[in-house]
Amino acid sequence: MRVTESWRQNKTWAKYLGKEGVVVASTLMEVAATDQLAFLPYSYLVVNLGKEKISVMGAAGEAFNCGDKVKLVLRKIKKEAQAEVITYGLKAIHV
């Protein structure tokens, strides 16, 4: 994620941080694109928050099943080329 994208997205964090929801569908990824290699294995989830759904990465190394209750928290997204500017994004953890 580019620093500029992280900056734009942080304006939505307040809307989602701490929100709880239910996993609609998920997968545990063992192959990822360049930027996410350090997180492997990680889950990718569609979470129903009630009034809307959101797609998020899961906490590293955790598997999630349909129906699991989760909470959205902040995660650090490190990119080697941006070592001086640390970006953040959302992730889901088990409640």
């Binding site: 994620m1 994208e5 569908a25 990822a32 996410q36 990680y42 990718y44």
Partner: peptide, 22 residues
């Protein structure tokens, strides 16, 4: 790009597969 950070196409279709299987 805005809504599916961290996904890959195998992951997106895996989500669909898990849903179909369930």
């Amino acid at each position: 790009r805005d809504q599916e950070y961290g996904s890959t196409f195998p992951a997106l279709y895996a989500v669909l597969a898990n849903y179909h299987m369930q």
